[in-house]
């Protein structure tokens, strides 16, 4: 059992980690997108453009938070908070190492709950109230359309996301992420659960509303979707929440399918392996964004319900049969 002091330190470390990693991922994304598109990317601020995120954040902080006359101001203010809080809360369950990795006094994770996967879904499903309320409260038709798209898209893909992880939970026999990672000592679940892994990644792209599923903020059709009327750091909060969700989805994928902290070398290196796998997931998100065009909205919905959901159900059924037979 861990003392209250350890829990407080852990909370601070999680927040510090996120606040440091998001600007780095932001810069990596802009640099990589540049390379993918045969450009150099941002290279003006600081050596090799390394200080670009600092400039971006300073710009966002110094901007005015304006709102249309038709908006509901208090709800507009609260929506980005919901997005950020729910995204950060999920990070508490990401395991970076076993309990005895560093000295045996504490586990390298925020909390080890027996219902970790459900916890992930609970905060994930609360998170899109941020998008929906933000879009609705803005009092503009583009924001409203973006919010409605977000609601329909997230509720459609959350089912497939849940079913894709059900196979993992059944194979490991637990909903706790720590148990799931420990069960992958011999073989990573990406091998027996390959279909589940593919479904999880596709549905994960839709859950984070990243390209090619970024319909809620499809800038060619509805300006900026739910964040059209947002400016300054409120927009920055939505932006940051999206990147935290990318980290969370990558981390869950790493923990559930890619063996989590398992890797060669001593056990003290566990957080390093977890971090590398997490960043590989983030890189994959950026790679896909640079490679695939945005889908049409009806394509998105029919793909989710007619292809992904039956496939996920089949995956669960086959996994269940295999587990019972062996």
């Amino acid at each position: 059992m861990e003392s209250t002091l350890v829990m407080i330190v852990k909370s601070i470390v999680i927040f510090a980690f996120i606040l440091q990693i998001v600007p780095i991922i932001l810069l990596a994304e802009r640099k990589l997108l540049g390379r993918f598109q045969s450009r150099i990317g941002p290279n003006r601020v600081g050596p090799k453009g390394l200080l670009q995120p600092l400039a971006d954040v300073f710009k966002l902080l110094s901007k005015e938070a304006s709102a249309p006359a038709t908006a509901v101001p208090w709800m507009m203010a609260i929506a980005p908070v919901i997005s950020i809080v729910t995204a950060v809360a999920t990070l508490a369950i990401i395991p970076f190492g076993p309990f005895d990795a560093w000295g045996g006094e504490f586990g390298l994770y925020g909390i080890d709950v027996p219902i970790a996967l459900l916890y992930f879904f609970a905060f994930g499903s609360l998170g899109f109230y941020g998008l929906v309320l933000g879009g609705w409260a803005s009092g503009s038709k583009y924001s409203f359309l973006g919010a409605m798209r977000a609601a329909a898209q997230l509720i459609s893909y959350e089912v497939a996301l849940g079913l894709s992880l059900l196979g993992v939970a059944m194979t490991a026999g637990s909903l706790s992420l720590v148990d799931i990672v420990e069960a992958q000592d011999g073989m990573w679940y990406v091998v027996p659960q390959f279909v589940g892994f593919c479904i999880f990644m596709v549905a994960g792209f839709a859950e984070t509303a990243r390209a090619p599923f970024d319909l809620p903020e499809g800038d060619a059709e509805i300006v900026g979707g739910y964040n059209t009327e947002y400016g300054g750091m409120r927009f920055g909060s939505f932006f940051m929440a999206e990147y935290i969700e990318v980290i969370v989805i990558s981390a869950i994928a790493a923990a559930c399918f890619l063996g989590g902290w398992h890797g060669p070398g001593p056990v003290a290196l566990a957080p390093l392996w977890m971090f590398l796998k997490l960043m590989a997931g983030v890189f994959f998100f950026i790679w896909i964004r640079a490679s695939l065009p945005r889908l049409r909205y009806d394509q998105l919905m029919s793909f989710g319900w007619k292809v992904l959901l039956p496939l996920a159900t089949l995956n669960v059924l086959v996994t269940a049969f295999v587990l019972v037979a062996t």
Binding site: A122, S125, L126, Y129
Partner: peptide, 18 residues
Amino acid sequence: AAGQVVVYAGAVMVLYVF
């Protein structure tokens, strides 16, 4: 508690909001 949030707050109420 998690089921309550996932099913009611996360799925049923989203349809209401919608």
